[in-house]
Computed example of a mutant assay.
Amino acid sequence: MESGRHCLAKTLVCHLWSAISKALFAEFLATGLYVFFGVGSALRWPSTLPSVLQIAITINMATAMVVQVTWKASGAHVNPAVTLAFLVASQISLPRAVAYVAAQLAGATVGAALLYGVTPGHIRETLGVNVVRNSVSTGQAVAVEVVLTLQMVLCVFASTDSRQASGSPAAMIGVSMAVGHLIGIYFTGCSMNPARSFGPAVIVGKFTVHWIFWVGPLTGAVLASLIYNFILFPDTKTLTQRLAILKGTTEVETAVGVEPQKKESEPSSGDIEMESVGQIA
């Protein structure tokens, strides 16, 4: 009997580790690809300087691509701000959120390093590091990043909420990223994603006003999470349930195209409830 329980526990741990490691690799891969293509579209080639529209379209397609590829594996957050938003919404545990952010930052750094390595020296310059335009104040830059990220995270929640959405959210999240870049490029180069700003900054060693690209997006993400999950479409989780999810003792099985289970009974001893949480950019 004791041996049977030990085998069952070992099997559950193996399944759990397999799922978590796959999700972390998905976040690493998606963020690396997003940074490679997104930042790459902004490089200034003398023969053909990139237009704002070209960058926005590339960001749109790159976002849709990485979300479509990895959203079933990890929820395709691809963005520490999105991960924080889902943490505030009690749709991901704190340990998993921390692991996701670490994977995203690592992926962004590798993606930026790869781009740096394949780009000629006179082209890569500062490698698309986000900077505040001369005519824009620090306060204005933060405010712009808050608004841009807020609309994107609201779109993420709306397009991954199983109560009102179905199918892949890739297209709509890509559109929200493009909308943000069509305006944000004129102010801050448009971050909306701390990992996107972090990767190139690490590679070229340029961290001037880097804090803006953390404070703005993270603040916008928290506001969007509160607006969507507590005002527009509040859920029924109790405080006890939220604390259990935060600690990782109870996992969530909502969002990202996964239909909620109809029965509310406790899972059997052989079941594992895994998080399937939503997305990007």
Rank of each mutant, 00 (worst) to 15 (best):
L24H: 13
L24Q: 13
F25C: 10
A26N: 07
A26C: 03
A26D: 03
E27L: 01
E27M: 00
F28I: 10
F28D: 12
L29V: 14
A30R: 02
A30T: 15
T31D: 00
G32L: 09
G32D: 14
G32I: 15
L33G: 07
Y34T: 08
Y34S: 08
V35Y: 02
F36K: 03
F36R: 02
F36H: 11
F37M: 14
F37G: 14
F37P: 05
G38F: 05
G38I: 01
G38C: 05
G40F: 06
S41K: 06
S41D: 02
S41L: 02
A42Q: 13
R44N: 15
W45R: 11
S47C: 05
T48I: 12
T48P: 07
L49T: 14
L49V: 13
L49G: 12
S51T: 15
S51H: 09
V52H: 08
V52T: 15
L53H: 03
L53E: 05
L53M: 10
L53P: 00
Q54K: 13
Q54G: 13
I55T: 14
I55R: 10
I57G: 03
I57W: 04
T58M: 11
T58G: 13
T58P: 01
T58H: 07
I59M: 12
I59P: 01
N60T: 12
N60E: 08
M61D: 01
M61Y: 12
M61K: 01
A62N: 05
A62M: 09
T63C: 12
T63D: 06
T63Y: 04
A64C: 10
A64R: 07
A64Q: 06
M65N: 00
V66G: 08
V66N: 07
Q68M: 11
Q68R: 04
Q68F: 10
Q68L: 11
T70P: 00
W71R: 14
W71V: 15
K72E: 08
K72V: 10
K72C: 13
K72F: 08
K72Y: 08
A73L: 15
A73I: 00
A73W: 12
S74T: 04
A76H: 07
A76Q: 01
A76S: 14
H77L: 12
V78I: 14
V78R: 00
N79M: 11
P80M: 09
P80W: 08
A81L: 08
V82F: 07
V82D: 04
A85I: 01
F86C: 10
V88Y: 05
A89T: 06
A89M: 01
I92T: 12
I92M: 11
I92P: 11
S93D: 03
L94Q: 11
R96W: 02
R96V: 11
R96K: 13
A97I: 08
A97Q: 10
A97G: 15
A99H: 02
Y100C: 10
Y100D: 07
Y100I: 05
V101R: 07
